[in-house]
């Protein structure tokens, strides 16, 4: 038994040493801040003409929505499929009621959460709207909206969101994303191409279709995760 433990320690140390040696300042993994961008794919995206072309001040957003817009559509689809799986496993057509938790929210929690709800929702919307200017965007912003809904669920043990509206919103946002992509195919040359003017770098109304797509992604992610939360926190009504 003791020998086994010693052997395990030895293997762990050996593995960690090999990981450290593999990741420490060699040609594949240069130390932090010393990367030569000309060797990487990102060098091409950080070209000044490209940045002017896309018009998004936040280069991460430019890559996620403009250059890799089709991949982001796939990402949204993955989230949709997982929400579908949760709904299949946990939801049912029978009448649903709130899960009974071993926890009763008191008055202070109820009122405080109602006050915080608006602030969190506003921050989420701000992050979605400024996705092309500042860090963040549709995915974190949408999740922030969903966490505001979750706070309401926490604060009131009888609260239920209007989940039908969320489902309609999710479907409409997802379809509009594809429709905007097809409009790019019609008005320009390829799927999800920017067909609107880029505008001035740094303006709220700039970067062509990026803000529109990020608003749609934010609404879709927010309503999807709210639906997942509702599925988790409800159960079938039993007599």
């Amino acid at each position: 038994m003791k020998l086994k433990n010693l052997l395990a320690l030895f293997v762990a140390l050996l593995l960690s040493l090999s990981i450290i040696l593999a990741l420490s300042n060699n040609t594949l993994f240069p130390s932090f801040g010393n990367v030569d961008l000309n060797d990487r794919v990102s060098g091409e995206y950080l070209d000044q003409t490209n940045i002017d072309d896309v018009g998004a001040a936040n280069i991460v957003t430019a890559i996620v929505v403009a250059y890799r817009g089709f991949d982001t559509l796939g990402e949204v689809t993955v989230l949709f499929v997982s929400a579908l799986g949760v709904a299949l496993l946990l939801g049912s057509s029978a009448k649903q009621k709130r899960l009974e938790l071993d926890f009763k929210p008191n008055f202070m929690l109820r009122v405080g959460s109602r006050a915080l709800f608006g602030i969190i929702l506003l921050v989420g919307l701000y992050i979605i709207l400024h996705g092309h200017l500042t860090p963040g965007g549709g995915f974190p912003g949408g999740t922030m909206i969903a966490s505001a809904i979750l706070l309401l669920y926490l604060a009131d043990d009888r609260f239920r969101a209007k989940i039908k509206g969320f489902k309609i919103l999710e479907g409409v946002a997802g379809s509009l994303y594809v429709i905007i992509g097809l409009l790019g195919l019609l008005l320009a040359t390829y799927f999800l191409q920017n067909f609107l003017p880029s505008g001035t770098l740094g303006d709220l109304l700039s970067a062509g279709i990026i803000p529109i797509i990020y608003i749609l992604i934010g609404l879709k992610v927010g309503s999807e995760i709210s639906g997942i939360i509702d599925n988790f926190l409800t159960e079938e009504e039993s007599a």
Binding site: D102, P135, F139, P140, T143, F232
Partner: peptide, 24 residues
């Protein structure tokens, strides 16, 4: 900062809340 915002919202907000609800 993009990853930081996502981590703050999902990692310490949503996932923690779901874990707590599940435990309750």
């Amino acid at each position: 900062p993009d990853v930081a915002i996502t981590e703050a919202v999902i990692g310490s907000g949503l996932v923690t809340a779901l874990f707590v609800f599940t435990l309750l």
